[in-house]
Nucleic acid binder design. Structure first.
Length: 436
RNA sequence: GGCCCUAUCGUCUAACGGUUAGGACAUCGGCUUUUCAAGCCGGUAAUCCGGGUUCGAUUCCCGGUAGGGUCACCA
């Protein structure tokens, strides 16, 4: 209260793995806080003791740390039960809430007590930073339940009390909470808490145009981590679903994101999440990495027996994320670098060239390559030597295809010069001779 | 169904009354040393519909339609 420092929060309930849509909310709340030199609070909403699980809480923390969304304060709602109780008692005493004896909803049928909010049944209007003026009538909400009993507060009460106690100035959350807002404002007025500024984010939709959800296949963020995405790319890519800086620039570092972020430019309509574009963001962020860093990562994602730095350049231009390195290896696209390929001889033939002609061309290639000194056996020299032969032939494919195929045994592979230079003179010659 | 919100290329979006409606992803085509990848160049592709307001609507207003969210002793 001493100053008007911005305080935002991310308040997940640990009842399941959180997906990208959830983390986008965290990203916006974080960016906004950092942008305004404020603080960012992580609050675990675990008032539902039955469903809350430690593993989910751990997963949230791991994910936030990985993304670099550092929070200035952390707590669980379950640690604040005394505060909730305090306000509950206060409300009951002041008449804005009451204890009601009712039959339990489960099939036990026993009579138990609930705490209900005394709804004044009025219109509640609030200004939303994204949606503008929103007005709702609270009549049909009735006297909604705010606690099971004094020691078991429920969502609305807990949220209001905790936001108040933590001095939250901006509630940035998903649009699925708009209809909860009037209820929470009512409670704020009852306990004498100020109404924070609200910003309800449009939802992130799946390819089915429905709210992203684990049930419909949305993956936990940690899955993206495991697939070898860069956290900066996720940050950048997810910030761009539902927000844009108003310029054509799309690749932003964390720092740039903080600087450029603005709630006023957040979209009003929901956005369908596009994984292909996320991969593109990731590729762009890989490109931002220093060469050594890229090499280090590619090498660590390669299987034990394939960790060869010479392979890095050809892998690099074929991947969007580190996990693709592993996939390439598993698909057998790299095997020929380590052992002689096996293939059917007729695959060496380029179009309708006669087999004898292919053999003849291969021999010429061998001759040209033999003339190269072992120490000059690099991509550039190989290319010069081979191209000289190829151009004499009139059809480059009649030479280049069989050479490439003899070296790789694959329909699709890097070019023959690159392969030869990685294989080295001896191995290259041996494979060509075998093909003749 | 009630309440709330939304509506520009397939997708993410720019435009804050006047633009050949721009960019990115995807897609298609071309070029580069055969194939693949990368790179470069180029193409296809959008203002949901109907009324207003205005000299002029993607833009403002109304209605329709469509989509989404939400209606717990979950959060």
């Amino acid at each position: 209260m001493a100053d008007n420092k911005v305080v935002t929060r991310f308040a997940p309930s640990p009842t399941g793995f959180l997906h990208l849509g959830n983390y986008r909310t965290a990203i916006f709340a974080y960016l906004y806080a950092k942008k305004h030199d404020g603080s960012f609070v992580l609050r675990i909403e675990d008032t539902d003791r039955e469903r809350s699980k430690k593993e989910y809480e751990d997963n949230v923390i791991e994910s936030l740390n990985w993304l670099g969304l550092s929070y200035d304060k952390f707590y669980r709602q379950s640690e604040h039960l005394d505060k909730h109780k305090f306000y509950l008692e206060k409300m009951i005493k002041e008449g804005s809430a009451y204890v009601s004896k009712e039959q339990a909803k489960d099939d036990s049928g026993e009579i138990k007590e609930l705490v209900r909010f005394k709804n004044p049944n009025i219109d509640v209007a609030f200004k939303d930073e994204i949606k503008g003026e929103v007005m709702m009538n609270t009549k049909d909400l009735g006297d909604f339940v705010i606690a099971r009993n004094l020691n078991e507060p429920l969502f609305h009460l807990a949220v209001v009390v905790d936001d108040f106690e933590a001095g939250i100035t901006h509630v940035i959350r998903g649009e699925d909470h708009v209809s909860n807002t009037p209820r929470q404002i009512l409670i704020q007025r009852a306990i004498g808490a100020p109404t924070p500024i609200y910003a309800h984010l449009p939802l992130v939709l799946g390819p089915d145009k429905l709210k992203l959800s684990k049930r419909r296949g949305a993956l936990p963020l940690t899955e993206y981590k495991n697939r070898g995405f860069l956290p900066e790319a996720i940050l950048n890519g997810m910030a761009f679903v539902g927000w844009n800086p108003g310029t054509d620039k799309e690749i932003f570092t964390r720092k740039e994101l903080i600087k450029a972020f603005d709630l006023a430019r957040v979209q009003k309509s929901p956005a369908i999440f596009n994984e292909e574009k996320l991969e593109w963001f990731n590729k762009e962020h890989i490109n931002l990495l220093p060469k050594e860093e890229i090499e280090k990562n590619i090498l660590t994602w390669l299987p034990e027996n394939m960790k060869n730095p010479k392979l890095v350049p050809i892998i690099f231009e074929r991947i969007n994320k580190w996990g693709d390195v592993k996939d390439m290896a598993e698909r057998g696209e790299l095997g020929f670098f380590f052992k002689q390929p096996e293939y059917k001889k007729e695959k060496l033939i380029f179009k309708n060239t006669a087999p004898e002609k292919i053999s003849e061309n291969l021999k010429q290639a061998i001759k040209a390559l033999e003339n190269l000194d072992e120490k000059d056996f690099n991509q550039e020299n190989i290319k010069i030597a081979l191209m000289a032969v190829a151009d004499k032939l009139g059809s480059r494919g009649e030479l280049l295809h069989p050479v490439r195929f003899a070296l790789s045994g694959l329909d699709k592979s890097p070019d023959p010069f690159t392969i030869a230079s990685i294989l080295g003179k001896n191995e290259t010659l041996s494979r060509l001779q075998k093909a003749v």
